[in-house]
Amino acid sequence: MGEAKSSYASTETLYSVQYLRAAAALAVVYYHVSALSQETWGLDPERIDHVGAAGVDLFFVISGFVMAMIVGRPGAFDGREFWIRRIARVVPAYWVITFAVFALAWFMPHLFNSTTADLSTLMTSLSFLALDHGDGNTTPLLVVGWTLNYEIFFYAIVALTAGLFGDRRLHGASLLIISLVALGLWVRPEDPSLAFYTDPILLEFVFGILIYRTWSRTRQLHHGLALAMFLSGTVLLVLQWERPVGDLRMLFWGVPAAAVLYGALGTLTFRSPLLARLGEWSYALYLTHVFVITLYIKHIISAVTTIELPWQVHYLIMTIFTVAGAAAYHMVVEAPLSRWTLRSLRRPQPALKQTVRPTTGPAE
């Protein structure tokens, strides 16, 4: 999720954004480790690390920040290049995983609880559309892909307002998102798709836009203020580690995530090749981690009952395995497919040959 460092030159020095991507992806990993452990072994459901899911909220805030940075560059806004970069970054790696899930659900349905190899669900998943499957469910085949449906929707709003209306500051995009959320709070739509596209979680993209507008004025934050924002956001999240937030997600997780990003821009200015690389792998980690965790918890550990290990060791092992799997997926699948897609979409289209017809007279 989010734009890779190599995809936009103006953010190559923003190591803090890369570090936060790594942290956000790992937080989601730990949430799914906790939730799947509870599901498999019947542990106390109150002890699930719910706030690990706030890694998604941090991703959304970062996405708003990055899109504001990209659209705010000097020069004319190139809508075609904008979409080429978004498609190359997001689509190929996601489609590969989605087709893999569909194939597994088709040939080995016993591996899944509710996922089925349904062609209509496959098409909506590949289209990044949150459409009702008929049972009130809008979740794509790859469950974590619901966040990408929001990402693509946000990109469409940015492209619309910046491309058609010259909204380079994304004021129009922010106003449109706020209007959608206000409409949802007023109407309370029962249709799952309408509820999805008017959910208050959309405001987290606006948070990121506001952070960029504030940060871009000087790009120099007072260290004490930045540190206070970073620590306060982190503490607010840690204090509610095992507390599900429900409808108040944007408030309880989105606002602290915004504070973490704002503070990180002024505090996490050091250079760490390892953390930067983890940030580069964050999208692959987000797409693949559920498979690695499921394999470890439901099959490996469940089969080896003679070995007792502290939970910290299990977390360490799964961290290593998920990161290793993400690195492999990034290098073997994600990065090559992204480069190939960029080249293919940027390839000049052959000019149409003009056909000259003989005329029969002035009247024609």
Results as ranks from 00 to 15, higher is better:
residue 6 S to E: 10
residue 12 E to D: 07
residue 12 E to R: 15
residue 19 Y to W: 09
residue 23 A to L: 15
residue 26 L to N: 08
residue 29 V to K: 06
residue 29 V to H: 07
residue 35 A to Q: 14
residue 55 G to E: 03
residue 58 L to T: 02
residue 75 G to P: 09
residue 79 G to N: 08
residue 83 W to E: 03
residue 90 V to M: 10
residue 91 V to P: 01
residue 92 P to Y: 02
residue 94 Y to S: 09
residue 108 M to H: 06
residue 110 H to D: 15
residue 120 S to L: 04
residue 129 L to K: 00
residue 131 L to F: 05
residue 140 P to H: 07
residue 141 L to D: 00
residue 141 L to T: 00
residue 146 W to I: 05
residue 156 A to G: 14
residue 158 V to D: 04
residue 164 L to Q: 11
residue 167 D to P: 04
residue 167 D to L: 03
residue 168 R to E: 07
residue 169 R to C: 07
residue 170 L to N: 01
residue 170 L to A: 02
residue 170 L to K: 01
residue 178 I to E: 00
residue 179 S to W: 00
residue 191 D to R: 04
residue 198 T to Y: 02
residue 207 F to V: 00
residue 209 I to E: 03
residue 220 Q to E: 15
residue 226 A to S: 12
residue 229 M to L: 13
residue 232 S to Q: 07
residue 235 V to M: 14
residue 235 V to L: 15
residue 237 L to I: 13
residue 238 V to P: 08
residue 239 L to S: 15
residue 240 Q to F: 10
residue 244 P to I: 11
residue 272 S to D: 12
residue 276 A to C: 14
residue 284 A to I: 08
residue 284 A to Q: 08
residue 287 L to I: 12
residue 295 L to C: 11
residue 295 L to W: 14
residue 302 S to C: 09
residue 308 E to H: 12
residue 318 M to Q: 10
residue 326 A to R: 05
residue 326 A to Q: 09
residue 332 V to W: 12
residue 341 T to P: 01
residue 349 Q to M: 11
residue 350 P to K: 06
residue 351 A to L: 13
residue 362 P to L: 15
